[in-house]
Design a protein around this nucleic acid. Structure first.
Lengths: 212, 212
DNA sequence: AAACCATGTGGACACTGTCCACATGGTTCA
DNA sequence: TGAACCATGTGGACAGTGTCCACATGGTTT
């Protein structure tokens, strides 16, 4: 039955989903509530039954991104359990990969469009949890004598800075530009990215491990 | 003479200057061409004699930021001439300070709002020069046997990643939040920031110097 | 069957960026 | 000197936006 009901039934999810697509190929500034509604085939006011604001839709899209990020990170932590260095590298790899493939989403999530403080439940929590998980990875590495014995919070913060820095450069295309990589579809994208990140992250890791 | 001339005389600069103020206290999304014009006391179409687009005004504002950044960096390089580690740290300190004090400007400059590739002269050049200057600092440090002997371009890229990472976290307020610093005006702001960055940057620097 | 209420609708408003034709007045040339 | 020129200003118009309002619809609860 192709019949369009008066009540859509799953509008909230549709709004977020169409919003993500629009974000990906037109950037955060190119998102229009009315166009999303038009795209779904619903009145220009319907979104307001599910979000108080355009801002709230953006936050929902970002929250979706944070949720996926966190889920994947938890899987990686399990997969590389007992190998803090691997956990760190794979997490970095994943964030940077996301930043490279969905730069606009990365921009929305980490570019200051979202005010973490003023959000009730989801966002601030997700952000804090990411930090907490980094701290625990690092404490683990310290117990194993793999990492230096500085304040774990400081180490976690600088690790996160390194990750975000590489991701930021990936999202703005600077990595590709500097390495002069011609990203032909035939070349294995992921492999190239991996070796680039390996090189960049290596310097930092050397310091974190306290060895030459 | 308070008389308002038909021809303003210095409109282009006024537009950029008022634009910077509006950017600083309302964010990049809060900038309105018409309001800037209204603010200056000029018709809503006058800006179009100096910029083809709103986008071009934003780029001019960003370019102004890049120019100031570069000028200050050149001064720092001279001041700490012969001390690559100092050059690196002071440059970082300056970028992060800017990101902390003018987060919206940082967001405009590095947040993907500006397409470097499609700009004729100013922007891409400024960006490349910043990279080039980093490379030369690092080569200098390598000759002095202070830094490890890896590929200078890779080292420069990862250094820039570290800098941008710390700056990104500073601009989104994460540093303040994590350190739970209550930024009372009486406390010396710059000193606190300095010690935070010192701690964060230290890990990376340890790796760059290849020593525990 | 009646009342309720979450979810949909269209109309209206102020605001935006951008295009158009026209006004102004300093500069340049016959 | 006077006339033509042109960079720089003006207001009007248009489509598009986010958001508020009153109203419609129809499944759920009494």
């Amino acid at each position: 039955m192709e019949q369009v009901n008066y009540h859509h039934g799953d509008l909230r999810n549709s709004l977020v989903s169409v919003g993500i697509n629009m974000l990906n190929d037109r950037g955060v500034a190119g998102i229009s509530l009315r166009e999303i509604a038009r795209n779904i085939g619903v009145g220009h006011n319907a979104p307001y039954r599910h979000f108080r604001n355009k801002q709230q839709l953006l936050e929902a899209i970002a929250e979706d991104g944070f949720r996926r990020l966190k889920a994947r990170n938890m899987r990686l932590e399990l997969e590389f359990s007992g190998d803090p260095e691997g956990q760190l590298f794979e997490s970095t790899m994943h964030v940077v990969g996301m930043a490279a493939e969905q730069p606009n989403l990365f921009q929305l999530m980490f570019g200051g469009h979202i005010q973490l403080e003023e959000r009730g439940a989801g966002l601030k929590l997700a952000s804090d949890e990411a930090m907490q998980s980094l701290v625990s990875i690092i404490c683990n590495g310290q117990q194993k004598k793999i990492f230096i014995q500085d304040d774990p919070l400081v180490l976690a913060l600088s690790t996160m800075s390194m990750i975000q820095g590489i991701a930021l450069m990936a999202s703005s295309g600077k990595l590709k530009a500097q390495f002069q990589v011609h990203m032909t579809p035939s070349v294995e994208h992921q492999t190239l990215l991996r070796s680039m990140i390996l090189q960049l992250f290596d310097v930092f890791l050397r310091g974190l491990k306290g060895q030459s």
